[in-house]
Write a protein that binds this DNA or RNA. Structure first.
Lengths: 307, 307
DNA sequence: CTGTGCGATACCCAGTGGGTATCGACGCGC
DNA sequence: GCGCGTCGATACCCACTGGGTATCGCACAG
């Protein structure tokens, strides 16, 4: 049995007339008769009673008709579903993300965009750090990662795109002497105590900061390590030390903390979308497009992107 | 798109390997490749990603797989449904019946038989007299009729089978002189008042009774007409007159009424199953078979069938 | 660098879907 | 009542296509 048989059967059942049905199907009447005969042989029972002025359905045919219609509808539905999936209008995307992706507001914005415009896409979110994401990719547990520093060993089989880049600024208590100056250079911070993120959380960022300080001829004294930008800002406001934080935090007018740019601190916090090299996924592509749009809009609000 | 494509697709999607899938389908690998290519062209998007060590599903393919399986299952379901309908194991039967069919207990027995053994057959019941049934047949509103006298004009395009035949006996008050006698002949009733069914309810039966009486050289005096055997028996017990009633009523030991056979009253109440000439219907056939069985069993309880 | 495994391509053949001509049967109308 | 029209079935033909065999191209493994 093939869908052709069902299409023909439905046409004849609706017209109750081989000739008219054949005309509707754009075939001649004899082949139609034969196809119906083949179908009846295949089903194992007559579906029509041939009468002089046309045909009528047998009980078996009457029972078969709605089921045949359902089958045809289901076949079409299958086709449409595949097409929609190919267009990225349906499906599921498993996203791994680091804390910063949520903190900068980019991830929430993309999520609300998807809920709004592509509700039939399921999103599964997993907060995990860069290394966990690399592992999850290897095991096929996530389809897309949002992270700040790409594990270098994964560079070969993962593809990355920086969607957002945010300069770091200095956060300090408002009472700090430097808070009075509009701008200053990195070397002016030589004597400060720092609150720093631990190296394992973002090795690239951590190393970058240390390297810049060394270039300015000092080694930063780390008063406290802390994971998570909110924690770091809290420690700064408590007077534990100064810290480099993403510029977007300067927007969040938090009392008890002053933010100032540092002239020669050419370090920025990247947010990159990462996925497995060579895997096509329309849903993932739509997600990345949305990411770019949202991140671009946010950058414009915060200020011009460096470079 | 044809079911063949879906069958092939599912095989490849399950094996993730054209060669193995082809072996499972008992075809060679190249034709399989081509069918899948055709399917992909038809759906409008690739369903597999060809990799050096086999294939994997694209997002579209992943979405397509369950839908394809559903389609195949639905096609099989359609086929089975038609087969079951052909065997008379499913479907719907619209039955018209006269009061007597229910009164003799035959209809209730058949109904409980169907509820028990063929629960997936839907039965629609319509109480209607013989003429209404003939009309309902003409309009295609019922598939089977149970009646006592076939409208003669319908004999051409309706087919009938008498499933039950019950002799008439005389019902009278126990105080009636004839109640003392074991048997008597029709002519002994020449002076009686009769309770009779109206001619329009059962013309054949009515005419038969009148004709027999005339053969016995008298014309029955009709004290009262009444439709429905129960009503008639009530009137008899109230002393309105005597009446001919089906023998099965003699079983229902109703106080206040005596029943006696009449030697030369060769009139019996038929119960016939009637259906449209030349229409095959397995459900209807099963119903008639059940009718025969039930009616036969009841006849044996009541007594031997005449002739 | 060569062998191996896998899907794609090229090409062939037979079976079948679809076409035309015609038949046979049943109703209908003059 | 008898031809004629209508409708499905049958007979026969052709071309397309589903399936077969041989072979290629490619990527990885040893």
């Amino acid at each position: 049995m093939e869908l052709r048989h069902l299409r023909y059967f439905v046409a004849v059942a609706e017209e109750l007339h081989f000739g008219r049905a054949a005309r509707r199907l754009h075939i001649a009447q004899p082949p139609l008769s034969r196809q119906i005969r083949d179908l009846e042989r295949d089903v194992g029972t007559p579906l029509f009673e041939r009468r002089p002025r046309g045909v009528e359905l047998t009980p078996a045919g009457r029972a078969f008709l709605p089921e045949a219609r359902l089958t045809l509808a289901q076949a079409e539905r299958a086709q449409r579903t595949a097409q929609r999936a190919a267009m990225g209008e349906t499906g599921r995307l498993r996203v791994g993300f680091v804390e910063a992706a949520a903190d900068t507001g980019i991830l929430p914005d993309v999520l609300s965009f998807f809920r709004m415009h592509l509700p039939s896409i399921g999103l599964s979110l997993f907060e995990m750090d860069s290394l966990q994401q690399a592992e999850a990719f290897r095991d096929g547990r996530i389809d897309l990662g949002l992270l700040s520093s790409i594990p270098p060993d994964a560079g070969r089989w993962l593809q990355a795109e920086v969607v957002h880049r945010e300069p770091l600024v200095l956060a300090m208590p408002p009472t700090h002497p430097l808070a009075g100056r509009k701008r200053f250079a990195l070397r002016d911070l030589a004597g400060e105590s720092f609150v720093l993120i631990p190296r394992y959380v973002g090795p690239a960022l951590h190393d970058d900061i240390i390297a810049r300080c060394r270039e300015a001829d000092f080694s930063p004294r780390v008063a406290q390590e802390a994971a998570g930008w909110h924690t770091i800002v809290s420690l700064v406001s408590a007077g534990v030390g100064v810290a480099f934080v993403p510029m977007s935090f300067a927007q969040a007018e938090r009392s008890g903390v002053a933010y100032r740019p540092v002239r020669d601190l050419s370090v920025s916090l990247d947010l990159a979308a990462v996925w497995k090299q060579g895997e096509k996924s329309p849903v993932r592509e739509r997600f990345v497009i949305a990411l770019r749009a949202v991140a671009g809009a946010r950058s414009r609000v915060i200020g011009p992107r460096p470079r």
